[in-house]
Measured scan of single mutants.
Amino acid sequence: RLHIEVEGTELMKKLVEEAKRRNLNVRAKVENGKWIIEID
């Protein structure tokens, strides 16, 4: 499991799109103003 903290929506969208393209499980949520992304 990969755990990433990202500031900025554009970067988050790119990460999520790339993960979906590779058929990975992606969860994204906002915590303290940062995107928290978990990829399995």
Results as ranks from 00 to 15, higher is better:
residue 1 R to N: 10
residue 1 R to H: 13
residue 1 R to E: 07
residue 1 R to A: 13
residue 1 R to K: 13
residue 1 R to W: 15
residue 2 L to D: 06
residue 2 L to Q: 08
residue 2 L to K: 05
residue 2 L to V: 12
residue 2 L to S: 04
residue 2 L to W: 15
residue 2 L to Y: 14
residue 2 L to P: 07
residue 2 L to H: 08
residue 2 L to A: 05
residue 2 L to E: 06
residue 3 H to Q: 11
residue 3 H to E: 10
residue 3 H to V: 15
residue 3 H to L: 14
residue 3 H to P: 07
residue 3 H to W: 14
residue 3 H to T: 15
residue 3 H to D: 08
residue 3 H to M: 12
residue 4 I to T: 05
residue 4 I to D: 03
residue 4 I to W: 10
residue 4 I to S: 03
residue 4 I to H: 03
residue 4 I to R: 03
residue 4 I to P: 03
residue 4 I to V: 07
residue 4 I to Q: 04
residue 4 I to E: 03
residue 4 I to A: 04
residue 4 I to N: 03
residue 4 I to L: 10
residue 5 E to Y: 11
residue 5 E to K: 07
residue 5 E to L: 11
residue 5 E to P: 05
residue 5 E to G: 04
residue 5 E to D: 06
residue 5 E to V: 15
residue 5 E to M: 12
residue 5 E to I: 15
residue 6 V to T: 06
residue 6 V to H: 04
residue 6 V to M: 05
residue 6 V to Q: 03
residue 6 V to R: 03
residue 6 V to K: 03
residue 6 V to E: 03
residue 6 V to L: 06
residue 7 E to S: 12
residue 7 E to W: 15
residue 7 E to H: 12
residue 7 E to M: 12
residue 7 E to R: 10
residue 7 E to G: 08
residue 7 E to I: 14
residue 7 E to Q: 11
residue 7 E to L: 14
residue 7 E to K: 12
residue 8 G to V: 07
residue 8 G to W: 09
residue 8 G to L: 13
residue 8 G to Y: 10
residue 8 G to D: 15
residue 8 G to E: 12
residue 8 G to A: 12
residue 9 T to G: 07
residue 9 T to V: 14
residue 9 T to F: 15
residue 9 T to K: 10
residue 9 T to H: 11
residue 9 T to L: 14
residue 9 T to Y: 15
residue 9 T to A: 11
residue 9 T to P: 10
residue 9 T to W: 15
residue 9 T to E: 15
residue 9 T to R: 11
residue 10 E to R: 09
residue 10 E to I: 07
residue 10 E to A: 12
residue 10 E to H: 08
residue 10 E to N: 06
residue 10 E to Q: 09
residue 10 E to L: 11
residue 11 L to T: 11
residue 11 L to H: 10
residue 11 L to M: 13
residue 11 L to Y: 08
residue 11 L to A: 13
residue 11 L to N: 10
residue 11 L to K: 08
residue 11 L to W: 11
residue 11 L to D: 09
residue 11 L to Q: 13
residue 11 L to P: 03
residue 11 L to G: 05
residue 11 L to S: 08
residue 12 M to K: 02
residue 12 M to C: 15
residue 12 M to P: 01
residue 12 M to I: 07
residue 12 M to S: 02
residue 12 M to N: 01
residue 12 M to W: 09
residue 12 M to H: 01
residue 12 M to R: 02
residue 12 M to L: 06
residue 12 M to D: 00
residue 12 M to G: 03
residue 12 M to A: 10
residue 12 M to Y: 06
residue 13 K to F: 13
residue 13 K to P: 01
residue 13 K to L: 14
residue 13 K to V: 10
residue 13 K to S: 07
residue 13 K to D: 04
residue 13 K to M: 14
residue 13 K to T: 08
residue 13 K to A: 08
residue 13 K to G: 04
residue 14 K to V: 10
residue 14 K to F: 12
residue 14 K to D: 04
residue 14 K to G: 04
residue 14 K to Y: 11
residue 14 K to L: 12
residue 14 K to M: 11
residue 14 K to Q: 12
residue 15 L to K: 01
residue 15 L to E: 01
residue 15 L to V: 11
residue 15 L to H: 02
residue 15 L to A: 03
residue 16 V to F: 07
residue 16 V to M: 08
residue 16 V to H: 02
residue 16 V to L: 09
residue 16 V to D: 01
residue 16 V to T: 03
residue 16 V to Y: 08
residue 16 V to N: 01
residue 16 V to G: 01
residue 16 V to E: 02
residue 16 V to Q: 03
residue 16 V to I: 09
residue 16 V to P: 00
residue 17 E to V: 06
residue 17 E to G: 07
residue 17 E to D: 12
residue 17 E to N: 09
residue 17 E to Y: 11
residue 17 E to R: 13
residue 17 E to T: 07
residue 17 E to I: 09
residue 17 E to A: 14
residue 17 E to F: 09
residue 18 E to A: 12
residue 18 E to T: 05
residue 18 E to Y: 13
residue 18 E to S: 08
residue 18 E to I: 10
residue 18 E to K: 05
residue 18 E to N: 06
residue 18 E to F: 11
residue 18 E to V: 07
residue 19 A to T: 01
residue 19 A to Y: 13
residue 19 A to D: 00
residue 19 A to I: 07
residue 19 A to W: 10
residue 19 A to L: 15
residue 19 A to P: 00
residue 19 A to E: 01
residue 19 A to C: 14
residue 20 K to T: 09
residue 20 K to V: 10
residue 20 K to R: 14
residue 20 K to M: 12
residue 20 K to W: 09
residue 20 K to F: 08
residue 20 K to D: 02
residue 21 R to I: 08
residue 21 R to G: 05
residue 21 R to M: 08
residue 21 R to L: 08
residue 21 R to Q: 07
residue 21 R to N: 08
residue 21 R to S: 08
residue 21 R to H: 08
residue 21 R to P: 01
residue 21 R to Y: 05
residue 21 R to V: 04
residue 21 R to T: 03
residue 22 R to S: 06
residue 22 R to T: 04
residue 22 R to N: 12
residue 22 R to A: 11
residue 22 R to G: 05
residue 22 R to E: 05
residue 22 R to M: 13
residue 22 R to F: 08
residue 22 R to W: 10
residue 23 N to L: 07
residue 23 N to W: 07
residue 23 N to H: 13
residue 23 N to D: 05
residue 23 N to K: 12
residue 23 N to M: 11
residue 24 L to S: 02
residue 24 L to A: 04
residue 24 L to P: 02
residue 24 L to Q: 06
residue 24 L to K: 05
residue 24 L to H: 06
residue 24 L to W: 09
residue 24 L to G: 02
residue 24 L to D: 02
residue 25 N to E: 08
residue 25 N to Q: 12
residue 25 N to T: 12
residue 25 N to R: 14
residue 25 N to K: 14
residue 25 N to W: 11
residue 25 N to G: 08
residue 25 N to S: 13
residue 25 N to F: 11
residue 26 V to H: 02
residue 26 V to E: 00
residue 26 V to S: 01
residue 26 V to N: 00
residue 26 V to K: 00
residue 26 V to L: 04
residue 27 R to H: 13
residue 27 R to K: 11
residue 27 R to W: 13
residue 27 R to D: 05
residue 27 R to G: 04
residue 27 R to Q: 12
residue 27 R to T: 15
residue 27 R to Y: 14
residue 27 R to P: 01
residue 27 R to E: 08
residue 28 A to Q: 04
residue 28 A to S: 06
residue 28 A to Y: 11
residue 28 A to I: 15
residue 28 A to T: 13
residue 28 A to K: 03
residue 28 A to M: 13
residue 29 K to I: 11
residue 29 K to P: 00
residue 29 K to W: 15
residue 29 K to G: 04
residue 29 K to C: 03
residue 30 V to R: 15
residue 30 V to E: 15
residue 30 V to D: 05
residue 30 V to N: 14
residue 30 V to T: 09
residue 30 V to F: 15
residue 30 V to M: 15
residue 30 V to W: 15
residue 31 E to L: 12
residue 31 E to Q: 12
residue 31 E to N: 06
residue 31 E to V: 14
residue 31 E to F: 10
residue 31 E to D: 06
residue 31 E to Y: 09
residue 31 E to T: 07
residue 32 N to H: 08
residue 32 N to V: 02
residue 32 N to D: 08
residue 32 N to Y: 05
residue 32 N to W: 03
residue 32 N to R: 05
residue 32 N to G: 09
residue 32 N to T: 02
residue 32 N to L: 05
residue 32 N to E: 05
residue 33 G to Y: 02
residue 33 G to W: 02
residue 33 G to I: 02
residue 33 G to T: 01
residue 33 G to Q: 03
residue 33 G to K: 03
residue 33 G to V: 00
residue 33 G to S: 03
residue 33 G to H: 04
residue 33 G to R: 01
residue 34 K to H: 09
residue 34 K to I: 13
residue 34 K to F: 09
residue 34 K to D: 03
residue 34 K to L: 09
residue 34 K to E: 02
residue 34 K to T: 06
residue 34 K to P: 00
residue 34 K to Y: 08
residue 35 W to E: 00
residue 35 W to N: 01
residue 35 W to I: 06
residue 35 W to Q: 00
residue 35 W to H: 02
residue 35 W to V: 04
residue 35 W to T: 01
residue 35 W to M: 03
residue 35 W to R: 00
residue 36 I to K: 04
residue 36 I to N: 02
residue 36 I to V: 09
residue 36 I to F: 06
residue 36 I to M: 05
residue 36 I to Q: 03
residue 36 I to D: 01
residue 36 I to R: 03
residue 37 I to N: 00
residue 37 I to G: 00
residue 37 I to S: 00
residue 37 I to M: 01
residue 37 I to K: 00
residue 37 I to H: 00
residue 37 I to Q: 00
residue 37 I to L: 06
residue 37 I to D: 00
residue 38 E to I: 14
residue 38 E to M: 09
residue 38 E to G: 01
residue 38 E to P: 00
residue 38 E to W: 12
residue 38 E to N: 04
residue 38 E to T: 13
residue 38 E to S: 09
residue 38 E to F: 10
residue 38 E to K: 03
residue 39 I to Y: 04
residue 39 I to R: 00
residue 39 I to P: 00
residue 39 I to E: 01
residue 39 I to K: 00
residue 39 I to A: 02
residue 39 I to Q: 02
residue 39 I to M: 05
residue 39 I to D: 01
residue 40 D to W: 15
residue 40 D to Q: 08
residue 40 D to R: 09
residue 40 D to P: 02
residue 40 D to L: 13
residue 40 D to F: 15
residue 40 D to K: 06
residue 40 D to H: 08
residue 40 D to M: 11
residue 40 D to I: 12
